[in-house]
Design a protein around this nucleic acid. Structure first.
Lengths: 235, 235
DNA sequence: TGCCGGCTCGCTGTCGACAATCGACTGGCG
DNA sequence: CGCCAGTCGATTGTCGACAGCGAGCCGGCA
């Protein structure tokens, strides 16, 4: 039970545009839409059973999120991911998470780390079981929660952009089993440092953690990135 | 002569949507559209002489940029700026610029600081002349250039979101004359540190600089923020 | 007099159609 | 044989119109 608000207001409240954004997110993050693939508005609209107006608005959003790239009057395509993008992504991610941790530590009330600890624990178990998908999922939860706990709204907004890209990278790349153990265990020093309210150590820990992840991913990116099955559109 | 590409391809190349985005940017950043003011699509479209379709797409963009807030089926309004937003803005800005500086310093080729130095010099002169508008303009140039020099694309994208908000804050707040001198001169230590390729010192310098600015702005925000003239729309 | 229900109106969400533009193909000319 | 101009198809950009939700107003009822 990750989170199921079911707040009733959710019922039908989503506009068509947001539905489309969700669908496209899913498609891009899962790799159903491969990097570089063109998005033909007419076709997509027909496939989704909607008109082009909300679809175009959705594409605007995807565009601001950096998931697609639009060339005026030329078209839109799923954005590609080069090695440089990975490096940039993880370097930015590092400083954002470091900021989050500083915010958390600076909070007057002793912060509630139980959520993070619970996630971390489950992640370790999943890693030892070799359940790669679960580890990834919990990894994302961990970092999303960390950002949320900072109470820094603007940071959360910014993080959203980064998180989308990270998720994308993680799906495009298949990790080895050793890797996920490494990743899972490297959350522990972060928790320790936050618990001790030691800003310096926490910052180092998170940056080391992120750098590790980034290195693992960037390591042989060219290999793992572009075997995008050259299937023509089938969404 | 800030920058005038005039590359001829610019002629007519902008879609209507982008024009609208520019106009709305201008209107919001200049305060012509005051915080909280509702944006009625029908009216706006009529005033701009366009249909609602490109206007709505433009609003999507403004929305992702955080300049407006949309409540589904209720409408869009210019987003407000609370004191908390200012604090968050400047804290994020600090870490982003610190990252930029680290990138610049890490670059193998000795970076070309002349552009920054030139801007800084002109800023000092403007500050001594008491030319507030010019100082602000040069201040923005300085920081935009700094980010650009990092060569970090994702950082530039992220910076765009921050810079928009900073510009907005700067227009909503009238600085005192002492303030701008203080701001202008506090760029110097940053330049020095970069020149010496001293990462530690540069980071401290930029964070001090940003913090100073943030404090100056946040100081009496409630006073300077909300005297938004309650004029009804005249765009 | 105060509260509840229905009505009306303004506005947003969505749609289908038209106009404009770009790329590729084809044919003619040097 | 190669290059340039003209044409055609495909795709995006823009528009006006309709449908549907939400808020505020008005009237009836306790």
């Amino acid at each position: 039970m990750p989170d199921a608000p079911l707040s009733l207001g959710q019922l039908q409240s989503k506009s068509l545009r947001e539905h489309i954004v969700d669908v496209l997110h899913e498609a891009i993050l899962c790799g159903d839409l491969s990097p570089g693939q063109p998005l033909i508005e007419t076709d997509l609209a027909a496939q989704l059973g909607v008109s082009r107006a909300p679809l175009r608005e959705a594409i605007q959003i995807l565009n601001s999120e950096g998931l697609v790239e639009t060339i005026p009057r030329r078209g839109t395509r799923v954005s590609t991911l080069e090695r440089k993008d990975i490096v940039e992504l993880y370097s930015l991610r590092g400083v954002l998470e470091a900021l989050a941790i500083r915010c958390i530590i600076d909070q007057s009330d002793p912060c509630d780390l139980r959520r993070l600890e619970a996630i971390s624990e489950r992640m370790l178990r999943a890693a030892n079981r070799g359940n790669l998908r679960k580890v990834n999922e919990l990894d994302h939860s961990f970092h999303d929660t960390l950002i949320a706990m900072s109470g820094h709204c603007l940071l959360q907004t910014t993080w959203h952009l980064v998180a989308l890209r990270v998720r994308r990278v993680m799906t495009l790349r298949n990790m080895r089993n050793d890797d996920i153990r490494l990743v899972a265990y490297s959350h522990l020093p972060i928790l320790d440092a936050i618990r001790d309210r030691d800003g310096e150590r926490a910052t180092s820990a998170i940056e080391a953690h992120v750098a590790t992840g980034g290195d693992l991913v960037a390591e042989d990116w060219e290999v793992g990135a572009m075997p995008a099955p050259l299937d023509e559109r089938d969404l």
